[in-house]
């Protein structure tokens, strides 16, 4: 499971304050805690409160890179902020994210290639977010076509079919499973299958339970990456266990210990 730790995000008060006061302590602590919890990437999002988002992105990345070696996921909807973040990146990196429009991909894929970065591509375009499987798969196929056209490695592409919150449209989550399955077969090697997990259960009373169950069900259909709360130990252990059940790792009595390393 590629777990992208979501916590360094200006939407959270402690990170917002840290950005405002240029006080690295809270960010350093979150970087260490999420790394220890097993995060594969640390998502970095400056939020909306700062007047200089590009500067804030660079500062956050530098603070994190001085603290841990965990690869970073630069999270922004703005191309310039992503570029600013990439300019200070030292290690492996993931760009979060590009929309699925051809003209967007023509911008993002060459940039990702230049920095040897991976790229999350959302199955949404200027028409909005599709509500069905077919239209999402159509965009997914265009993403794969674009990767081939740009000679961008498919193993670096993360397709995100855009998971809706369960309390917004209850029909949506079940559609995801079919999509994960189909994306697995779209190419060889296939792109990764990613979701924003916390988004799915936001505003519900059983946030963690819903996230945990969706993640384990998703893994059984081929979900292999998620922007998620890696500090939720039950969630992380559930993911490892789902992968063991799907025979993705060799079982041993201490499989949790082995996989947490």
């Amino acid at each position: 499971m590629i777990s992208i730790g979501e916590r360094i995000n200006g939407m959270f008060k402690d990170v917002r304050e840290a950005i405002k006061n240029k006080d690295p302590k809270a960010v350093q602590e979150l970087a260490i805690k999420q790394t220890e919890a097993g995060a594969s990437f640390l998502d970095v999002n400056v939020g909306t409160a700062t007047a200089d988002p590009a500067g804030a992105m660079k500062w956050l990345i530098e603070v994190i890179q001085d603290t841990v070696k965990t690869p970073i996921a630069i999270d922004s909807q703005k191309f310039d902020i992503i570029k600013a973040g990439l300019s200070v990146i030292k290690n492996e990196v993931l760009i979060n994210s590009s929309k699925g429009d051809p003209e967007e991909l023509d911008k993002y894929m060459p940039l990702a290639k230049e920095y040897n970065a991976s790229l999350i591509c959302l199955t949404m375009d200027k028409c909005g977010i599709p509500q069905d499987v077919e239209r999402r798969m159509e965009i997914a196929m265009k993403i794969v076509e674009k990767a081939v056209e740009h000679e961008y490695e498919l193993s670096k592409v993360y397709i995100d079919p855009v998971l809706f919150p369960i309390n917004v449209d209850q029909k949506q989550p079940a559609l995801m499973f079919d999509i994960f399955n189909q994306i697995k077969m779209i190419s060889d090697p296939p792109p990764h299958r990613n979701v924003g997990l916390s988004n799915f259960s936001q505003g519900t009373k059983e946030k963690r339970l819903l996230a945990r169950i969706f993640l384990t069900m998703g893994i059984s259909y081929g979900l292999d990456a998620a922007v998620m709360d890696v500090l939720d130990k039950d969630l992380m252990d559930a993911a490892i266990t789902a992968e063991i059940i799907m025979n993705q790792h060799v079982y041993s009595d201490s499989y949790l210990t082995a996989c947490r390393k």
Partner: peptide, 14 residues
């Protein structure tokens, strides 16, 4: 036994 094989490696590494 591959499962025990992995287990003993974990135990030793611990």
């Amino acid at each position: 036994d591959i499962n025990i094989g992995k287990q003993i490696n974990i135990l030793v590494s611990e």
